[in-house]
């Protein structure tokens, strides 16, 4: 199973006799076929690394001149007025909106997705498993514009009273303070993103849960574990690295999701006051860039947007590295 973190549950599995899997050139026989295939695989690997590096270089090179001209603090300013004689721009608002909406999406989609995956693999009757799994895979392939349309036309009217209720009862808490904005709030976008990435979390988690060795499940059951205890002692620990990979893939999609978010967000007027509220509007990195693609009129202006894109790039990178570390720390315990 591929993943954005490059880690999967089966990565480190030793062979049947307990040896580590053959890696590097150890298995090569030096024959022509081996050398051709080995060369082709190496080339593909190198191409990926070079591409990612070039993208990073491109972003940095294009962003630096604009950043040098910037007279506002890039990280702490909420202004966005790139280009012109005195460009002032900062990413604080986009960072806040992107991170909170995506975090909210994860908080909803990971537990629900794991639950759905457990249902399909452990609880659903046998006749239902394959169709349910196929359905989830299908949902994962639905283009995001469809989720955007659905969110705007169908879900938004349902959410308005919910938001009203929450503002009414929980408005004393800064995150839920009323702002007068309804529709494309951070909270609403978080929910739409959650629904959008839910099939990804579910599909990948289902895949790993399904691979839990019967021996481990029986081991737990034979100790007198109930079904839930068996899942807790055998299935969940086995699937943990896979669930983390799935979440990262989903988070990557949520952070960078453009079209559905562009469709839904309520952009804030310039100079509107700062608030911690999730019921505020605001642009994400991706939606801001997409909404203003027509404005890339001069290098300085374009550079500002590319700098914002660079932050998104680094953000995804950092998130994936953290996931990698989390998985690595428990590696000795994943067989």
């Amino acid at each position: 199973m591929s993943s954005v973190t490059g880690v999967s549950a089966t990565d480190e599995l030793p062979g049947p006799d307990g040896r580590p899997p053959l890696s590097g050139d150890a298995a090569s026989t030096g024959r022509v076929g081996d050398r051709i295939f080995g060369g082709a695989a190496t080339l593909s690997g190198v191409v990926v690394i070079v591409l990612v590096s070039l993208i990073a270089v491109f972003l940095i090179v294009q962003a630096i001149p604009a950043l040098a001209d910037n007279s506002a603090n890039f990280f702490t300013s909420r202004e966005w007025a790139p280009g012109g004689d005195n460009p002032r721009f900062g990413i604080l608002e986009f960072l806040w909106t992107t991170v909170t909406a995506s975090t909210l999406a994860m908080l909803i989609s990971v537990p629900v997705g794991v639950g759905v995956a457990l249902f399909i693999t452990q609880y659903a009757p046998a006749w239902m498993r394959r169709p349910a799994a196929a359905l989830v895979d299908l949902l994962a392939a639905v283009p995001s514009i469809v989720y955007g349309l659905w969110g705007l036309i169908t879900f938004s009217p349902f959410f308005k009273p919910v938001q009203g209720f929450m503002e009414d009862k929980l408005g004393w808490f800064p995150l839920f303070a009323p702002t007068g904005i309804s529709g494309g709030t951070i909270f609403f976008i978080g929910i739409v993103l959650a629904i959008m990435v839910l099939p990804i979390v579910t599909a990948l988690s289902r895949e790993v849960f399904d691979q839990t060795p019967l021996a481990h499940k029986e081991g737990a059951l034979a100790l007198g574990a109930t079904k839930w205890e068996m899942i807790r002692t055998a299935v969940l620990p086995f699937g943990r690295p896979g669930v983390i990979s799935a979440s990262m893939l989903a988070l990557g999609r949520a952070l960078g999701e453009t079209i559905a978010v562009t469709f839904l967000v309520s952009a804030l007027a310039d100079g509107s006051p700062w608030t911690w509220s999730l019921f505020n509007g605001g642009e994400t990195f991706a939606s801001k860039i997409a909404n203003n693609a027509a404005e890339f009129s001069n290098p300085s202006k374009t550079g500002a947007y590319i700098a914002a894109g660079l932050v998104l790039f680094v953000l995804t990178f950092v998130v994936n590295s953290i996931a990698r570390v989390v998985i690595e720390r428990r590696k000795a315990f994943t067989e």
């Binding site: 021996a215 481990h216 007198g224 109930t226 002692t233 086995f238 315990f333």
Partner: peptide
């Protein structure tokens, strides 16, 4: 059945310690 299995333990053909546990 859970009670039965807590009273009557079982050891399997292939050793199956829980891989994620110490």
């Amino acid at each position: 059945p859970v009670t039965v299995r807590r009273t009557i333990g079982m050891v399997f053909q292939r050793p199956n310690p829980f891989p994620t546990m110490s």
